[in-house]
């Protein structure tokens, strides 16, 4: 495997979608290649940073309004 091909297999690797044989060749390449190892690490850190986009607090008025709607549903729906 060449670096140029290895970078295109990174998602399949992370998703566990490579065949056993390809996975083995991929891991062998990574073990011996500083560049591809660094690239994979960059991808992992990218994913870590992307996941932080979820950290956004619900605005107080929205929470109050939804809670009120939930309360109404609880007391009237059934």
């Amino acid at each position: 495997m060449r670096c140029r091909d290895v970078v295109e297999l990174m998602t399949d690797y992370l998703e566990g979608a490579l065949s056993a044989r390809d996975r083995e060749r991929f891991e062998e390449h990574i073990a011996g290649c500083d560049g591809c190892r660094a690239y994979l690490e960059q991808l992992r850190l990218t994913l870590k940073a992307v996941s932080r986009l979820a950290d956004e607090a619900i605005p107080e008025p929205v929470q109050a309004q939804l809670t009120e709607a939930f309360r109404t549903w609880t007391s009237t729906a059934r």
Binding site: R4, G35, A38, Q42
Partner: peptide, 30 residues
């Protein structure tokens, strides 16, 4: 390709290695 082809030589190996992000402080990375 998702990586600029010019980053690889004719043999398909990195011309210049991607840099490690391991030393980037957490408060910059996120």
């Amino acid at each position: 390709p998702t990586v600029d082809p010019s980053r690889f030589g004719r043999d398909g190996a990195w011309r210049e290695l991607p840099t490690t992000w391991q030393n980037i402080p957490e408060d910059r990375l996120i």
